[in-house]
């Protein structure tokens, strides 16, 4: 399968990319790692006239220590996110989730920013980014704005990033010393999440002082299980099942060949308990 013809543009700065996009109007598509976009173009589900490759903009790559937060460039490949010491120390949940995405080859190309803008509800990066209270930096013709993760995901494959705009950076408040786990349920290796749960907790004297829980594929967007987060405060390892029983509250999971909505609701409670338990262990 071969994509339809397009013009290829490879800007080397964010400013240049924005002006190329402004000139191209509706007919341009941004290319990051290409691990979602190229299959789409090859299947001809989309046929843009212009493809604007961000791959030559060095400023969009890498992880920076921003004091109370980490600033991750949108074009940082998954494999660099997982291997990064700052991420492992201050945002362990993100590393745990990203290392489950696809396979090593795809993690070498796919980027954190590309996956977030793609916003597949079964994708593995939305839930941890939401649970870690990240902020997204979006630039466009009108300048730069920041969008909290809670307002970033609008619907299936729709985010706060509009036409002609770019996601440039993901800022993650440091969660130093928090334990974390990503429980991804699949039937065979190398599959998309049927359901997955991202949990990170701060433990004090054997019980949970603070908890953050994100859900993958339990609705059109990644979701926070806020009822569970509140119920977990003060829990010890033996009292988790009750607190996690509300994991599916307020969710709207899909029904498909992998399982119906009720099955997914049940899975969410089980995986939440497992994830929180593992997170408490480190």
């Amino acid at each position: 399968m071969i994509p339809a013809s397009f013009d290829y543009l490879a800007p080397t700065s964010v400013e240049e990319a924005l002006s190329v996009l402004a000139e191209a109007g509706d007919d341009a598509k941004v290319l990051a790692g290409g691990q979602s976009l190229l299959p789409i173009l090859r299947m001809r589900l989309n046929a843009p006239e212009k493809v604007v490759d961000l791959g030559r903009i060095e400023a969009l790559r890498g992880v920076r220590d921003g004091g109370d937060h980490l600033a991750i460039g949108a074009m940082t490949p998954y494999s660099d996110v997982v291997a990064n010491d700052l991420v492992r120390e201050h945002a362990g949940l993100l590393a745990r989730a990203v290392e489950t995405v696809a396979d090593p080859q795809i993690r070498h190309r796919g980027t954190l920013g590309g996956a977030l803008v793609h916003a597949d509800p079964a994708g593995d990066v939305g839930a941890p980014v939401l649970a870690l209270d990240a902020t997204m930096v979006v630039v466009g013709p009108g300048g730069e704005r920041t969008v909290p993760a809670t307002e970033f995901f609008h619907d299936l494959f729709e985010t706060a990033v509009g036409d002609g705009e770019l996601l440039t950076e993901i800022r993650i408040p440091k969660h130093t010393g928090w334990g974390s786990a990503y429980e991804k349920f699949v039937r065979v290796s190398h599959q998309w999440s049927i359901v997955a749960v991202a949990a990170t907790v701060r433990v004090e004297g054997g019980s949970i002082a603070e908890a953050r829980v994100g859900l993958t594929n339990m609705g059109n967007t990644p979701l926070r299980a806020t009822a569970v987060e509140q119920a977990l405060v003060g829990s010890s390892a033996s009292g988790l099942a009750d607190a996690c029983a509300a994991a599916a509250e307020g969710t709207n999971p899909p029904s498909d060949l992998n399982g119906d909505a009720d099955y997914r609701r049940h899975l969410a409670t089980v995986l939440t308990r497992r994830a929180v338990q593992k997170a408490m262990e480190g």
């Binding site: 290829y8 290319l31 290409g34 190229l38 299959p39 791959g55 070498h108």
Partner: peptide, 16 residues
Amino acid sequence: HLDGRSVKSCNVLAVQ
């Protein structure tokens, strides 16, 4: 291998 890292060459453009 692209710059020493494995990639699926059916999912990369030659221009990249």
